[in-house]
């Protein structure tokens, strides 16, 4: 460490004259465009956040490897679309050809992510559960698994991002106060929200959903009432994996060059923050938290005039909200939600 710090100390770092400025003019000018982009990213964060929230609700475990479940889905999308001859340039294909290809990529991504989620659960968490390991052991294992997967991908694919994959050329759909909303944003936000409503309804209404809520509320009683706890846990990981796989497709759609060994890390941290902000364990909270993190980050970036501020602003707001509402905006309540 010291040897890294000293050279920096010896030479003054070039910085701008003013290190913080508020650009209100730019904020008002770019308000709508940053809103729409914020919502688009928020929708992706929310899908990933659901994976954190569900697992936390059921196991009281922060599954740090969930960001790798997500990036596995991204590689699923990448390999499928590469095999289908997609590349950095928008493909010149007909309407149904693109629909078919994207559905195929979605299915592969979902399978890849869900499979990775189940593998993580079986290899890393189940043995600990059977041996009644303390809570801390799970946490450390989660971090360890996350790094293990990340660097396995590094070893396999190298440090550079994969070549960009453009799925379709975004087209202006409508105009809000002079700002264009494009097809990409509409697709991502609508599809993500529908997926989240479906998940919410599934948890609230289906038999398996009831099982998930029962285990979240009281695992022992649930087991006595005939709920197969192990099956419920695996199902929870699978649902998280499916949503992460879908998020992967939308993420690559939005960021065509985002497929990289550590590409899930920051996104995972933000999605986890979204889950906490909305109220961890709360499905609707994940949606709200995701959209809020997306919006706040983008607003902060425009207001403060540099991308360097996106994460600073998002996390400062997270801390402030948690000071006022330690349980998150909507409170943590997977077990308590009404059927």
């Amino acid at each position: 460490m010291i040897s890294e710090v000293i050279p920096t100390l010896l030479h003054s770092v070039p910085v701008d004259d003013t290190w913080i400025t508020f650009d209100v003019n730019s904020f008002t000018q770019n308000f709508w465009s940053s809103t729409f982009d914020g919502l688009t990213f928020g929708a992706i964060y929310a899908l990933v956040a659901l994976g954190y929230t569900l697992v936390y609700g059921v196991l009281n475990l922060i599954n740090f490897a969930h960001s790798e479940v997500f990036i596995t889905g991204c590689y699923g999308v990448f390999f499928t679309l590469s095999a289908l001859n997609f590349g950095p340039s928008a493909p010149r294909l007909g309407f149904w050809a693109i629909v078919g290809n994207l559905v195929l990529a979605l299915i592969v991504a979902i399978i890849a992510s869900a499979l990775m989620a189940v593998i993580v659960e079986r290899v890393a968490y189940k043995p600990l559960r059977q041996r009644k390991a303390p809570r801390l052991a799970f946490l450390i294992t989660a971090i360890g698994v996350s790094f293990a997967i990340q660097y396995t991908i590094y070893w396999w694919r190298g440090p550079s991002p994969e070549a960009a994959l453009t799925m379709f050329r975004p087209l202006a759909i409508f105009d809000v106060f002079g700002t264009i909303v494009d097809s990409q944003q509409v697709v991502i936000v609508i599809a993500a929200i529908i997926l989240m409503i479906a998940t919410d309804q599934f948890i609230r209404r289906s038999r398996t959903g009831r099982g998930i809520r029962a285990v979240a509320q009281d695992p022992d009683t649930a087991t006595l009432m005939g709920v197969n706890k192990e099956k419920i846990i695996v199902t929870t990981f699978i649902i998280g994996g499916i949503l992460a796989g879908a998020a992967a497709l939308f993420y690559v759609m939005k960021i065509p060059s985002g497929v990289q060994y550590n590409g899930g890390f920051i996104l995972g941290v933000k999605a986890f923050a979204a889950a906490v902000l909305g109220g961890i364990g709360n499905v609707r909270g994940a949606l709200l938290g995701g959209l809020l993190i997306g919006l706040i980050g983008n607003y902060g970036q425009v207001l403060l005039g540099s991308s360097q501020w996106t994460d600073v602003v998002a996390f400062v707001v997270l801390v402030l909200v948690l000071i006022v509402r330690p349980e998150g905006v909507l409170g943590s309540s997977l077990g308590k939600s009404k059927a």
């Binding site: 693109i98 994207l102 050329r169 759909i173 097809s183 990409q184 609508i190 599809a191 997926l195 479906a198």
Partner: peptide, 13 residues
């Protein structure tokens, strides 16, 4: 959801 999404995507292209 998927169908809607793909519809918009397809149109765009």
């Amino acid at each position: 959801a998927a169908t809607l999404g793909m519809l918009v995507a397809g149109c765009a292209n």
